[in-house]
Design a protein around this nucleic acid. Structure first.
Lengths: 199, 199
DNA sequence: CCTCGAGTAGTCAATTTTGAATATTTGAAA
DNA sequence: TTTCAAATATTCAAAATTGACTACTCGAGG
């Protein structure tokens, strides 16, 4: 499955554990993951099966409320928590030009990391995005000079630039809000989440 | 397969026909469709098979240049052209908040439509995007007042707004360039493409 | 008290996607 | 001349996704 599906489902299990599939399904649907991450209900159950097979989550028995169908309860394993952090970091420290899913997933789960790491990564992202905007500018200039490249390719670069500028503005705003003390991160007083040690 | 894969492959067959799979593969890879549309080489061959099954494209024999492997040549059918125009219009007249693929595909194939239709649709898109930005603004205000919604959900709306603003700016620029006479559309003098009649 | 739509908690077959493998040929360098 | 990496043109098995389907139960309204 796509890494985003894994990340979102594993992150959601972590956030709500012990938790059953149908709860995740409803919760994630209220997050509109079908719109921003292209995750349909069926994919959630599949992700659970696959994460379990990989040993990142495990069954913690089943239960039945009243005479409802049985529900399988899942929780993360220690390896699952490590893997989640790895995926989260990998997303945090990578800037995608076209795909919006990683940034959305990041926003949903960044509080699982420490404030200082998120702040550091956002600084890094600002530099990265600047570089991509600059490289895009040269691409636009090149297309202007080229006699073979179809002219409308310029529009794709143009759109990319504007979109990157938007993300840049957003990262700056988020950076300011976070350094101003907004939101609760792992290890902050009041957080339900302990920061995961780095080796 | 995703509609975007179908749209891009059918559009590419239309643009280059008669054409073989490997040509499309190389051409589309130079368009970086793997990055902006998530289309890997394997998906192109699958799309060709499926489009053929649906009667939107047909085989026009095979050929072998030198002692190279045989290549299957494809071309669109009349139904294929109609279907392509339908998909293209549907994309042109729909604004997606999160998914960037449709707009990218649009940019690649909009010249298959007439200048007047594209201009009309871009006007429509500006209105639509304004509405989405406005609705987003109310969502942000709501999140601020809600006691149950996690605070960081605000960031997702914030990012959406900025991204929509970027797309708005791009649409405006494109609108101006097109009304100023840039680019060649179906039916324009110099176009290789006839406009498709509407019933 | 009966019915009927909505909710519950998934499963499953069909479709799509992925990415590695295949079996060649070509061209360039050593 | 041999050799070897890159290109050619696909195929295919494994994995992922989709969305329709199942087999219930619950609660509200008539």
């Amino acid at each position: 499955m796509s890494n985003i599906t894994r990340l979102v489902v594993l992150g959601a299990v972590r956030q709500f554990e012990p938790v059953h599939g149908y709860f995740l399904r409803r919760e994630l649907m209220t997050w509109h993951v079908d719109e921003w991450a292209n995750i349909q209900p069926g994919s959630i159950y599949n992700a659970l099966k696959s994460l379990k097979q990989d040993g990142y989550i495990e069954e913690a028995g089943t239960e039945a409320a009243g005479k409802r169908p049985e529900r399988t309860i899942y929780r993360t394993t220690p390896q699952g928590v490590v893997e989640l952090m790895r995926m989260l970091r990998q997303t945090l420290w990578t800037v995608e030009t076209f795909d919006t899913k990683p940034t959305m997933a990041l926003t949903s789960f960044m509080f699982l990391l420490s404030r200082s790491e998120v702040v550091a990564a956002l600084k890094f992202r600002m530099t990265e995005i600047d570089a991509k905007i600059a490289s895009n500018g040269f691409d636009i200039a090149d297309v202007g000079h080229s006699t073979t490249t179809p002219a409308y390719v310029r529009e794709i670069f143009e759109l990319s630039s504007l979109r990157l500028r938007a993300e840049q503005e957003w990262v700056k705003g988020l950076f300011e809000r976070i350094t101003a003390g907004n939101y609760v991160f792992a290890g902050d007083p009041g957080s339900r989440v302990e920061p995961v040690e780095q080796k």
